[in-house]
Design a protein around this nucleic acid. Structure first.
Lengths: 217, 217
DNA sequence: GAATAATCTTGACAGTGTCAACATACCCTA
DNA sequence: TAGGGTATGTTGACACTGTCAAGATTATTC
């Protein structure tokens, strides 16, 4: 403690502190959530002084926004992959989509919380670029449903914006209830997914698949 | 500042500090959220010393749990009122229910966040009594759907637990997206509610109402 | 090579939750 | 009624937090 690591004189300037901070912060957040992230511990882990980060991010909120933004990029590339595999059967594909969404929100719990949670959106203030990322993310989804209407998969008397909002809400709600530990039975995720898919399909006026059997009530 | 309020000797003991703390805390949380609530400011507002609260609540988390629990009681009485007005037409009633849920979550935003948010469920630890309140709240909803199946309103081949989970997720998701400021257009709430109702109805295998017209997409 | 800008460090401040030790008032029994 | 135990309230202290201001060091540019 008395002696700090020598760190050869060269790197008084770290070189890539911004990236280093983001990486370590992402790691720490994945472990202990955003509220467990302390700017001081972060700096310490990266091997830099308390306030060094403030030369790269206006404040803690700005750091969190940057990490959320990266989350949106990650999701967009997942989404793009899903879009590629779009084949004939919409209802099968929707199953993949729902599964993909829930997997993403589970595997990136804390980052997901930053992307869609109150830490940034309510308490902090979303960066302009973060806002953009989030909106384009949602609009991609609306566009998808619009396409489906054109292709005749979805009743075109329906308002695609509402369908998008409500179905997204369903996925978001499930993600939250699971991630936050209100729904605890992780074993039920598959069954819930199936129900969600059926629900969305029926709301779309799409011709129904064979209904899944479910009786234990 | 030099002189503290005299507070006639009588009330060294406050008399009803526990309730006083809860009331003021609820008020403060409604204004600035749970993360804006400081134990010290709270004590100050109630006119008591920093640590007095710790004789009534184990820690901050316990206080928050108590407030969340009160939230569940409030919701249960709303729910009971709704149940009373249950008349013949299930689809009309479901509309009232959805509206009631969204109203509750909007009018009690911060308390709702405590009831169903990560502050307690993920980060803190829910009190035993809070857990009980929350579970019985959800089970009431499951029971309702079970009743509907008996009455023939809902396809009894469906798993009522799944229906409950998914439809609740929809309502929770909408509430969160609105409360946390991700969905901003409060003017769209009614339209979203209608869509949500239609979606849940169609998922229940209930005979459809006249579909709402919605075309601006 | 000197000036300017970018980056990093130390010091400081006002907050936070909560533990330990002490003070006061109430209540119940002898 | 006296006295002791218990519930409730207070003050002091500790380790932590985010972030501002001022100074130190290196990189960049004219």
């Amino acid at each position: 403690m008395a002696e700090k690591k020598p760190k050869d004189k060269k790197n008084y300037h770290h070189g890539s502190l911004r990236q280093g901070l983001m990486d370590e912060a992402t790691r720490m957040i994945a472990l202990g959530g955003a509220e467990g992230l302390s700017m001081r511990k972060l700096a310490d882990n990266v091997g830099v002084s308390r306030t060094a980060a403030y030369h790269h991010f206006k404040d803690k909120n700005a750091l969190l926004c940057a990490i959320a933004e990266q989350g949106f990029q990650k999701w967009q590339s997942h989404f793009a992959l899903l879009m590629d595999e779009q084949s004939g059967d919409m209802s099968v594909w929707l199953g993949h989509f729902v599964q993909g969404y829930l997997n993403f929100s589970r595997e990136n719990q804390e980052q997901y919380d930053l992307m869609f949670g109150r830490t940034i959106w309510k308490n902090g203030a979303p960066t302009a670029t973060l806002k953009k990322a989030s909106f384009s993310c949602f609009h991609n989804y609306v566009d998808l449903i619009r396409q489906w209407q054109v292709k005749g998969y979805v009743d075109s008397n329906l308002d695609c914006l509402r369908i998008a909002q409500v179905s997204w809400s369903t996925l978001h709600g499930m993600s939250r209830l699971l991630n936050d530990g209100i729904y605890l039975d992780k074993g039920a995720i598959d069954a819930m997914s199936k129900s969600a898919v059926e629900m969305i399909l029926s709301a779309c006026g799409t011709q129904q698949l064979k209904p899944f059997t479910a009786a234990e009530c």
